Amino acid sequence: MTLPAPHRLSEAEIADLHALHAEELRRFLWGVVGEASLIQDVIQTAFGKLVEVGHETQVESRKAWLFQVAYREALAQRRRSATQKRVLENLQEDPHRNGDGPPADPLVDQETADSVRLAIDELSPELKQVLRMRIYEDKTFAQIAQELDIPLGTALGRMRNAMNKLRGKLAWTQRET
């Protein structure tokens, strides 16, 4: 005997869950993330997951499941923010970037930009698309996933793959010079 496949949650069910739990979730996340824009991204991601797989959860445990998903996403956001902060601090400490070292050479800057452009051109179309949407269009990964109709994890994975490939190609280019 096979059980019927569960049906996805309806828009009304999602809206009801949002009305019931979004504000409490926002207050909870404030203690984890502490930044309003990140909190909104986390809530959007959590409810996006609810739309995708919420039908697989038990009705009585949906609130706990939603909070768990939001908590994990908040921690991931915090890690990403910390990484971005370290990168910015490293850029500020670079003597060639802040004017403490020798003046910037426009030819070197142009050569670096050309190397980056070539490395990006060598990426697969899927990786280029996610990279462009995240960096140039400043979209969240949730927005990218929604627009491309792919899971959030796939969007994140494509970005990670793109950055790793670029890092490898650019490191190789620097060794050649």
Rank of each mutant, 00 (worst) to 15 (best):
V69A: 14
A76D: 10
L107M: 01
P4T: 02
I39N: 04
Q58G: 04
I43D: 03
N98I: 03
A36T: 14
A12S: 09
N161K: 13
L148E: 06
Q44I: 00
A22L: 07
L88F: 07
D94I: 03
R26P: 02
A36F: 05
T173K: 09
G48R: 09
T2K: 02
H7S: 15
H18C: 10
D16W: 10
E93A: 15
A12P: 01
R175K: 11
E11G: 15
K165I: 11
V53L: 08
A19T: 11
P6H: 05
L29M: 12
A70G: 09
P151H: 06
T83A: 09
A142P: 00
P151S: 06
I14H: 12
E89S: 08
Q110I: 03
Q174P: 00
A22S: 15
A5W: 07
D105W: 06
F67L: 12
E60H: 13
E89G: 03
W30Y: 15
T83H: 05
E122V: 06
W172N: 12
A36C: 03
L91K: 13
E13A: 14
A155N: 04
D16N: 13
T173D: 13
G168W: 12
D94K: 07
E56V: 04
I39A: 03
E13Q: 15
V69Y: 08
